[in-house]
């Protein structure tokens, strides 16, 4: 499982404060803690913390780069931020994210290919998040086809079939699971399939329970990458157990430690 740690995000209070005060140490501690807990890459999101998102993003990237070479997922919806930052990220960058809109895909994929970066394609088009599995699969196939045309190596492509809160849209988890299973088959080798997990429980109670249960179901359906909180120990242990039960790792009595030993930062 390729795990992208989600904790460097201006939505979190400590991060919002750190960005405001330019407190590198807090950012670096969170970066290292996530890697120690088993993350292979780190998501970097300025959130609503700054009125100068480009400067704040660059500051975060530089702060994290001082302590790790792990791939960084540049998480912004603003093209002007993405296109300015990604060429400047030392080491591997993951473009997070791009919608399945033809014109948008063209420019984002070109950026990914030019910078040898990875990219997360969302199964969202101009009409928004699809209600069913079929549209997700169709948009996923569009992303994969476009990526191949653009010359992006398949191991640099992530498709995210978009999970939304279960209290708002109760049918979505099942649609996402069906889409994951189908998208696994769209090419050989297949693209990575990823979810921004915590969105499933936005506004719900028992968030961590919902998150990790959704994760296990998605692992079973073929998800092989995840944006989540590596510092959630129950989540991590469930992740490891599911990898074992799905025969992606070999059992030993110390299987949790054994899995974490093998989870090292690196390109997807």
């Amino acid at each position: 499982m390729y795990l992208i740690g989600e904790r460097i995000n201006g939505m979190f209070k400590n991060m919002r404060a750190a960005i405001g005060e330019k407190n590198k140490q807090v950012v670096q501690e969170v970066a290292l803690a996530q890697l120690k807990a088993g993350a292979q890459a780190l998501d970097i999101n300025v959130g609503p913390a700054s009125d100068k998102p480009l400067d704040a993003m660059m500051w975060l990237v530089e702060a994290v780069r001082e302590v790790t070479d792990a791939p960084l997922a540049i998480d912004t919806a603003k093209w002007e931020v993405m296109s300015a930052i990604v060429p400047k990220v030392p080491g591997h960058a993951i473009i997070n994210s791009c919608k399945a809109d033809e014109a948008e895909l063209d420019k984002y994929l070109k950026l990914a290919v030019d910078c040898k970066a990875s990219i997360i394609g969302l199964t969202i088009d101009q009409k928004g998040v699809p209600a069913d599995a079929e549209k997700r699969i169709e948009l996923g196939a569009t992303i994969a086809a476009k990526a191949q045309e653009a010359g992006l190596p398949m191991n640099h492509l992530f498709i995210d079939p978009i999970i939304i809160p279960v209290n708002v849209s109760p049918a979505t988890p099942k649609a996402v699971l069906s889409a994951l299973a189908a998208l696994k088959l769209i090419s050989d080798p297949p693209p990575h399939l990823v979810l921004g997990l915590s969105n499933v429980s936005q506004g719900c109670t028992e968030r961590k329970l919902i998150n990790r249960t959704m994760m296990s179901l998605a692992q079973s359906a073929g998800m092989d990458a995840l944006i989540a909180d590596p510092l959630d120990l129950d989540l991590m242990n469930a992740l490891v157990a599911a990898e074992l039960l799905l025969q992606r790792t070999i059992y030993c009595d110390s299987f949790i430690d054994a899995y974490k030993m093998g989870a090292k930062p690196g390109e997807p």
Binding site: I250, Y251, C252, D253, S254, D257, A258, M261
Partner: peptide, 14 residues
């Protein structure tokens, strides 16, 4: 036993 083979190695490592 592959599971024990792996376990001996992690024990030695630890």
């Amino acid at each position: 036993d592959i599971n024990i083979a792996k376990q001996v190695n992690i024990l030695a490592h630890d």
